[in-house]
Amino acid sequence: MVFGVPTQALLGQLLIGLINGSFYALLSLGLAVIFGLLNIINFTHGAQYMMGAFVAYFVMQWAGLGYWWALLVAPIVVGLLGVILERTMLRRLYGLDHLYGLLLTFGLALIIQGLFRNEFGSSGLPYAIPRQLAGGHNLGFMFLPNYRAWVVLFSLSVCLGTWFVIERTKLGSYLRAATENAALVRAFGVNVPRMITLTYGFGVALAAVAGVLAAPIYQVNPLMGADLIIVVFAVVVIGGMGSIMGSIVTGFALGVIEGLTKVFYPEASNTVIFVIMALVLLVRPAGLFGRAQ
């Protein structure tokens, strides 16, 4: 018993919090990467997360390829679709107010979600946990399903890998430089437009990875990303989009806080992240890790 709550329930919610946190972290990381270079808030992110899950479902249904293949194929497919999107549409908005990017991606999200809902309804399609990760371990104080442990570990490593590439490699240094001053980086002979395209593709691919990870837990549902993206926006506002590590830490931390709220004051579990966002804005308008403009 901790604060009058059974330890089992507490740890269970903590784990759920970590799972949610994994998705928040992956999605807000993608948003931050895209925002850094494109100055666009990608409203389609939730729909692309959903598409990741659907690609996993398709490769299973049509090609008989399992989860591990999906984890490879989904980011590539969704990332390529993202590249096409950037090349054909987003590119035309760079000279305009950033809000137009938000509106365009919002419209695209409506289209994608509407099309999938027409085709697959809104009840959701089942997706099985891969054989290798079925079952779980009894840790004595709680039961830890293998797949959930995998989701946390895998998303954490994807996040840290992304952080490493951006903060510690030459490629990442180009990216960061282009974020600061694209014109100057271009003058050094770096193909910045291509970099922008690939960055968008990569950010979107992260969303697709999150989608594949989510498929066995939440089923494959056309609207799985619609509400989630709003929470992720709040996460992004809380963390501030200035730092990669910031969005990772904020993502996981908020997931855990949300989980704990479910234990101690379930009525507020849906809104706690928004309340935290309001509080953070009152104290630090630039966000916890953001730079004041």
């Binding site: 549409m89 137009y100 509106l103 919002f106 419209g107 999200a109 409506l110 289209i111 509407g114 099309l115």
Partner: peptide, 21 residues
């Protein structure tokens, strides 16, 4: 038409932003 409403709305968004600001 159900969810087609959403699709049409989304399409209007896209057209407005791209060519009909």
């Amino acid at each position: 038409l159900g969810a087609w409403v959403t699709v049409v709305q989304g399409a209007i968004f896209v057209v407005c932003v791209l060519t009909f600001r």
